[in-house]
């Protein structure tokens, strides 16, 4: 973890919430979306989601969308800073995958040749 904490790994919840909010959504929509794209693997608890949304709002990575007509359920959308955070995370994950494939992939073929 770096000193600023800005370049550390994102939690799975934060990462998926940021992905979800590339389209404006309310809380329940985020839960459904995340469950769907993770094929039922990630089931965000409503309390966890609420906590993550408050933190992301504080950081300015997402913002509430004010709609006059349906202001009952609050909708959120990702901000420019939020997009940058996702891109940074995507690069970090890519590095993990690349290194994993390089080493495990290599060891795997080595074992096979023996």
């Amino acid at each position: 973890m770096t000193e600023s904490g800005e370049r550390g790994a994102l939690t799975e919840a934060a990462y998926y919430i940021l992905l979800a909010l590339h389209t404006p959504m309310h809380g329940y929509g985020i839960m459904q979306f995340v469950r769907q794209i993770s094929h039922d693997r990630v089931n965000l608890g409503a309390g966890t989601l609420y906590g993550a949304i408050s933190t992301l709002l504080d950081k300015g990575w997402i913002r509430p969308l004010s709609r006059e007509r349906d202001s009952r359920k609050k909708e959120y959308v990702i901000t420019q800073t939020g997009r940058q955070a996702v891109i940074a995370e995507l690069n970090r994950l890519q590095e993990l995958i690349d290194n994993g494939k390089k080493i495990i992939g290599g060891a795997h073929s080595e074992n096979e040749s023996i």
Partner: peptide
């Protein structure tokens, strides 16, 4: 409606 948990992460479970 599916499985129901309030917290799905360690930090918030610990805080609770």
């Amino acid at each position: 409606d599916g499985p129901f948990e309030i917290y799905s992460d360690y930090n918030m479970k610990i805080a609770h």
